[in-house]
Structure formats: C-alpha cells, structure tokens
Design a protein around this nucleic acid. Structure first.
Lengths: 168, 168
DNA sequence: GGACAATTGTTGTCGTCAACAACAATCTTC
DNA sequence: GAAGATTGTTGTTGACGACAACAATTGTCC
C-alpha cells in the first residue's frame, strides 16, 4: 500500500442497515479490519501473543516463562556474564533483570558470583540444578516450537526465522 | 537506521585479554544465544518491540498508540459496532476497551451512542473530528509501514503478512 | 407470563512488562 | 586525586492481559 492508503476511503460498505432499528447479530469474523490488514505490526502482535501463550502453556509444568527461558539460555551458553551484558544482549532493562535473577536465584537455578576483576558486577552462572533443569526446559521449548511449526507450516517458520534473523 | 547505532560504544581500550585468565570486556554482539536462535518466538518478540517503538515514534506527534489506532480503524470501517464486538474482533478484554474508549471519547474522536435495539449496549461511531483525525493517522501509519519495509525489505514484508494472515 | 440464565458495560484487583530516575559502590580517565 | 562513567539496586509510572464481581438488560425455557 502506498499513496492510496492515505486517502480517506469514502464509505465503509459492509454494514447491513444500521440507521434504523433493524440491527442484527454480528459475528466477529465478518467485521472488516480495513487498514489494519496491511499492517505488519498488527499481525506480528497477534502472532506473538499466540506464541507466548503456547510457550507458557507448554512450559507450564516447570513454570518457566519466555523471558526466564531466554535468560537461562544465555547464561548457560556464556557462563560468567555480568548482568549488564545479559541485559544488553537480550534487550532487557537491567532494572528488570534484577527481579528476574532474584526469582531464578531463589529457585536455585542461577547463582550470582562476585566478580574479582570488577567488584561492582556479578558473574552469572547456572547451578548444577540449573543445568539439568535447563536441559529439560529446552526439550519442552522444542516441543513448543513444533506447535509453531504445526500452526504456520514448516517452510513458513523457516522463512520467518530467516526474515527476522537481524532481530535476534 | 542500521546496525551502526548499536555500535556507538566501540571505544578505545577494551582490553582483549587479562593476564590471569579471568574476565575481559565482552561486546553484546559476541554473546551467543545458543538455543534461542532456533526459536521463532524470540525473533518475533524482538521484531514486535521494534515495530511498536517505531509506530509510537512515528505517530508520536498525534499521540496515538497501536491499540488506539486499531480501535479507531475498526470503528471507522464498521460504524455502530458494540464494545463487545470490537473487543472480540481485536482480541482486547472488554474491561480494557472501556478505558481505551474513555480516552478516545474524551479526545472527541469517538462517541458512544445508546443503542435502541439493545439498551445494554453502545453503538460506537467516529465523530466528524474523529474521521478527519483517523485519515491523518492512516497517513502516518502508512509512513511507519514504509519504515518496516525499509528494515526487512519489501518482499520479506509481503511474505510476512502472507504467513501471518491467519492471525489478523 | 414468569423464573432463571446469559450478555453488556463497568469497576476493581493483580501480575507482567517497558521506560525512567535516583542512588551507592566501584571503576576509568585525565 | 578529582571528575565522570558504569554496575547493580530500588522505586515509580503507565500500558496491557487476565479475572472477578456487579447492575441493567435481554434471551430462554417451562
């Protein structure tokens, strides 16, 4: 859509007599979205909500949410990182990461080790318990990923990951 | 903008190695994501955040957020809808829609008209002011959409909309 | 026709999350 | 050594989703 989208499109045409009293039941499927259909943001938002809901449900037994999973994964792959480094890499506020780590540390999945080279910072590590737990989380996350595949198709999922590779 | 913005901090002495083998300065780019790269949810989430930020910035002058825009668009395309219908179509809690409409009604963009056929419900309409305002919003939203196109490429954006069509 | 269930808008609470601001402790730089 | 920057922390604000409860109204069923 280019300049045409900017024009005030004259009449919304799908109504069935609203002016008088003859209103009828309207199903959600027959409500037009108009300009919204052309917006990537709307589709992406709805899709993201769907994905997160499935992730949360699939990892429900172990009580791990997407953000927690991402934190554990990054720490597991890069032991010793500082909170700042993790926050920057994942695009999380460092203030927010504090609470996330508080929770994960309470569950004995992660430990904050005082860094010897920079006494301001903490070196983040998985606990032994955290390592085995993460292995399980990864299996469940893979199961979730198969749900995504089933939803949009294997090829589409591949293409999606490819298109959005810059954002990871 | 491109990747250049992310590397503002590439400054002088990030020593690459500390003699005792302890820690060294680590750039966000060199932190591995491990399992996260294979997850559609992570990429989609990051992309969605980017999109919303750009939308909010692009529509910043008129102070319209994505959800408000979606509500206005749907009402504009389907005048007379009830709050329930709008909420269901957009996947918004009807409790949440109350506040959204309160705000939009205060700004004289939308009006709630008592329905004569169902005295419980309100028929939602744009005001005259709302119509001309929405036209402007759509122009700005189209501009935002061009930003998306510039970011991921025209063909990729088309493909994305196609892949996610079911979620609209 | 009348009792009972369902729907609509509303209010309120709770938890998640992004965006800031401020602060003490600790580097870094000059 | 002083000035400035960084790290982790605490706190606040506002958008948002999920629920629960409620009054007014409508729909249904016997």
């Amino acid at each position: 859509m280019t300049a045409s989208a900017a024009r005030v499109d004259a009449r919304p045409s799908l109504r069935k007599r609203v002016g008088n009293g003859a209103a009828r039941r309207i199903d959600a499927d027959e409500i037009g979205l108009d300009a919204l259909v052309g917006h990537a943001g709307y589709a992406v938002r709805r899709f993201q909500i769907w994905i997160f809901q499935d992730f949360i449900r699939t990892l429900g037994d172990v009580d791990i949410r997407p953000t927690q999973y991402s934190v554990l994964t990054v720490i597991g792959a890069n032991p010793g990182l500082s909170q700042m480094a993790v926050a920057k890499r994942l695009g999380i506020e460092r203030a927010r990461l504090v609470h996330l780590l508080d929770s994960l540390e309470q569950r004995k999945l992660v430990k904050r080790v005082k860094s010897k080279t920079d006494r301001r910072s903490h070196a983040l590590h998985l606990t032994g318990q955290g390592e085995t737990a993460l292995a399980k989380f990864k299996r469940l996350a893979a199961e979730h990923e198969r749900h995504v595949e089933a939803k949009i198709g294997k090829a589409n999922r591949e293409r999606l990951l490819q298109i959005l590779a810059d954002f990871t």
